[in-house]
């Protein structure tokens, strides 16, 4: 349940209504920030990453915790393979 997508706040759309513009992989949408402004004040939230669900930012993504989870999983290998055109 509850599809959520990480996106970055790139602009404030309407400060009074706590609306911001969130960008997810080059796709932008006006997003309600009411649930995250407790944690990140509106005037400081541009650049922050949040989890977006049905047009609402539901939580700030903590980059430090994300890094810690990944390092727990051991360092990542070089995950970008050379472009071999997918040939078998």
């Amino acid at each position: 349940m509850c599809l959520g997508t990480p996106g970055q706040i790139v602009a404030i759309h309407d400060a009074a209504k706590k609306l911001g513009v969130v960008e997810i992989a080059g796709v932008r949408r006006v997003t309600n920030l009411a649930c995250v402004v407790d944690e990140i004040p509106l005037d400081a939230c541009v650049g922050e990453w949040v989890l977006v669900h049905v047009g609402f930012a539901m939580s700030r993504i903590d980059p430090e915790e994300a890094r810690r989870t990944l390092s727990l999983l051991a360092e990542l290998g070089d995950s970008a393979p050379a472009d071999d055109g997918g040939l078998p």
């Binding site: 997508t5 997810i24 992989a25």
Partner: peptide
Amino acid sequence: EVAGFCEI
């Protein structure tokens, strides 16, 4: 962008 669109 299409990957992002699909994730959303």
